[in-house]
Amino acid sequence: MRHGSIPGARGRVRPLTLLGDAPLREQCREVTDFGSDLAVLVEDLFATMYAARGVGLAANQIGVPLRVFVYDCPDDEDVRHLGHVVNPRLVDADGVVIRGPEGCLSLPGLEAGTERYDHAVVEGVTMTGEPVTVHGTGFFARCLQHECDHLDGTVYADHLRGWRRRRLLRQVGRASWRR
């Protein structure tokens, strides 16, 4: 991405993997090649995320098992956070645990009250290999935790217990996108 360019403007929208598709449950591999293919992947992630009206998207959500995610997400003070992280590690998730509505582009049209910490820190690198640390609070902290989960083969439904989990799984079973 060149400085000043619009993320995803040159990307192509790719099909989303949905709950039940194998790539969504795979442990993603570390990125080792920081060439042009990685830049294309990041552009495609942004284009796909914007087309689906999301606030974050992990590479395995478009069938690519690499540790990369993008985000364009507000925090609770409506400050916009925009970027990408390659080989992210969730190094801190703390503060208050808040149950809030959470959805996912891989479970379209569904959401459930999911518990997440209200503060998160992710470390990784950019697509050019520069170190990056991303701090998030509130809704943006939720987004960071959610995207890091994806890269480990986890979806938000895995965090649910009891009636919330049962209700969401019933909704998934009735969903029109279910394969």
Rank of each mutant, 00 (worst) to 15 (best):
residue 33 D to Q: 10
residue 156 Y to S: 07
residue 173 G to P: 01
residue 52 A to H: 02
residue 114 T to Q: 05
residue 62 I to D: 08
residue 134 V to S: 09
residue 177 W to I: 05
residue 93 A to H: 11
residue 151 L to N: 09
residue 14 R to E: 13
residue 121 V to G: 04
residue 41 L to P: 02
residue 120 A to T: 12
residue 113 G to V: 00
residue 64 V to G: 01
residue 59 A to L: 03
residue 36 S to E: 15
residue 92 D to S: 14
residue 102 E to L: 06
residue 73 C to T: 11
residue 8 G to S: 07
residue 52 A to D: 04
residue 142 R to K: 14
residue 110 L to Q: 06
residue 87 N to V: 04
residue 51 A to R: 08
residue 92 D to V: 03
residue 67 R to K: 13
residue 112 A to T: 01
residue 153 G to I: 07
residue 70 V to G: 11
residue 54 G to S: 10
residue 54 G to W: 09
residue 129 G to S: 08
residue 97 V to K: 08
residue 25 R to N: 08
residue 52 A to N: 07
residue 64 V to C: 06
residue 21 D to H: 14
residue 172 V to P: 01
residue 126 T to R: 14
residue 36 S to I: 11
residue 176 S to D: 11
residue 56 G to F: 06
residue 51 A to I: 04
residue 57 L to A: 03
residue 6 I to N: 10
residue 142 R to Q: 15
residue 69 F to G: 09
residue 86 V to N: 12
residue 157 A to I: 08
residue 64 V to H: 04
residue 152 D to A: 15
residue 159 H to A: 15
residue 94 D to P: 00
residue 1 M to A: 15
residue 42 V to D: 05
residue 169 L to S: 06
residue 145 Q to M: 12
residue 81 H to G: 09
residue 179 R to A: 13
residue 25 R to L: 11
residue 125 V to N: 06
residue 98 I to C: 06
residue 134 V to M: 05
residue 94 D to G: 14
residue 97 V to F: 01
residue 9 A to M: 05
residue 168 L to G: 06
residue 127 M to R: 13
residue 81 H to F: 05
residue 56 G to A: 11
residue 61 Q to G: 11
residue 77 E to G: 00
residue 155 V to T: 15
residue 90 L to D: 09
residue 178 R to D: 02
residue 70 V to I: 08
residue 117 Y to M: 14
residue 112 A to D: 04
residue 55 V to M: 10
residue 73 C to Q: 05
residue 134 V to E: 14
residue 99 R to M: 01
residue 171 Q to E: 14
residue 169 L to T: 03
residue 54 G to A: 09
residue 32 T to R: 14
residue 28 C to Y: 03
residue 21 D to A: 12
residue 159 H to Q: 15
residue 140 F to G: 09
residue 52 A to M: 04
residue 151 L to S: 06
residue 117 Y to E: 12
residue 28 C to W: 04
residue 159 H to F: 12
residue 40 V to N: 02
residue 168 L to R: 02
residue 95 G to A: 11
residue 138 G to Q: 08
residue 48 T to H: 10
residue 34 F to A: 07
residue 66 L to H: 07
residue 179 R to V: 09
residue 56 G to Q: 12
residue 108 P to C: 13
residue 19 L to M: 08
residue 71 Y to D: 04
residue 126 T to P: 03
residue 144 L to C: 07
residue 2 R to H: 02
residue 55 V to T: 14
residue 67 R to V: 03
residue 40 V to I: 12
residue 88 P to D: 15
residue 160 L to N: 09
residue 104 C to P: 06
residue 75 D to G: 05
